[in-house]
Design a protein around this nucleic acid. Structure first.
Lengths: 208, 208
DNA sequence: CCAAAAGTGTTCTGACTACACCCATGC
DNA sequence: GCATGGGTGTAGTCAGAACACTTTTGG
């Protein structure tokens, strides 16, 4: 009996909130998908194990990562307790492992495959927490590159909240509360009017 | 290495937010105070262990109890992971154990003794969470008897939040949001005007 | 000239704050 | 009659929601 860690790694790809899953290449639950996770190494901290897993699967570090909940008996698994974390990453900064065994892949949260070890519960809880924290913190900073347009940010919010947001109100809120600020620059898209680029006032967790 | 559970049990006594501590009667940290807790029994669930601890120390069951956070290396202790819970009880329903060894006692949060195993961190976190949840849930239901006056409820809120609240605004909020409702009854105090008795609309956790 | 996305202001409503006086009771 | 706590209403402010049109650009 020991302690295990799992990480719910979210990103927004093509306007879809997605989560990183690993295809299991050995029993138990061979062939099913599961959240990245594993047992603590000797002497390793919980947080350190979560950071390690996140880095192993996506190559990223220094992103939003927070403890979520501690489960026991997850899928009658081998672990006495499973400490879950959730993380937010910018999909463009990630580099997934390419092996065919234990292959990681992004899955839209709206269409998850069958998961091993009751991982649905973990994902669902993480998703709720994400929706809540999005409303009163700046955690979205971890989902976008340094500079982005307000439309891009809004798309991220809409993907996570699952509903359309009014452009003007969104701007007022996100700028007014000091979540983001204008950089001087603009970006020229293809066939569109150039757009002002914004940046987060702080690229670390803060409560508003 | 194993998993341990600790429970931060809050109550409000004499207008002071207080927490239940146990005086340690054996090493390590003999003579210091610590939160009630211990290792999981074989086959026992985390939640079940927390419920058990709560019941052992206070005799109460069926109160608000929620997982708080999972620590590791708490005080360089023996546990690989320490899963903390926090609970709210009505002090008048509790019956503390009377033994002199491992004696439990209420301590005002504003004047804690030195705690073992870095339990200060746990208490502080629980306190923050309590303050936050008080604002947007009905968790106070667990701190008062079935029927109570609005003044009593307000005193509980003030003790937890640490600041005075306007009587009229408090009434509007707590009745208006449907946290409590009037019973028909009044209570006659000593030398005062009789007071309307209220009850919580639900004596279980709900988000407002 | 048309399609696509960027940008912009006002009005309304509901929630929260601040604030002061009268009432019923027991002593 | 007075001390104690119970009970009540109003005005101001602020945040959030609803809502439509104009501009720039590339093709």
């Amino acid at each position: 009996m020991a302690v295990a860690v799992v990480v719910v790694i979210f990103t927004v790809r093509d306007g879809e909130l997605s989560v990183l899953l690993i295809e299991r290449s050995a029993p138990p639950c061979e062939g099913e998908w599961a959240l990245p996770g594993g047992f603590l190494r000797p002497g390793e901290t919980l947080q350190a194990a979560a950071v390690r897993k996140l880095h192993e699967e996506t190559g990223v570090a220094d992103v939003f990562l927070e403890q979520l909940y501690t489960f026991d008996r997850l899928g009658a698994g081998a672990a006495e307790a499973v400490v879950s974390y959730f993380a937010l990453v910018d999909v463009h900064r990630t580099r997934l492992r390419e092996e065919l065994e234990w292959r990681p892949a992004w899955h839209a949260v709206r269409a998850l495959p069958k998961l091993a070890f009751e991982n649905e519960r973990v994902v669902e809880l993480a998703r709720e927490r994400l929706r809540n924290k999005l409303e009163y913190t700046n955690i979205a900073y971890s989902l976008l590159p340094e500079r982005f347009t307000l439309s891009e940010l809004q798309q991220v919010y809409e993907a996570i909240l699952g509903e359309a947001i009014d452009k003007r109100n969104f701007r007022k809120r996100v700028v007014g509360l000091g979540i983001v600020r204008e950089t001087g620059e603009v970006r020229k898209h293809g066939a569109h009017r150039p757009a002002m680029l914004y940046e987060f006032t702080r690229r670390e967790p803060m409560v508003l």
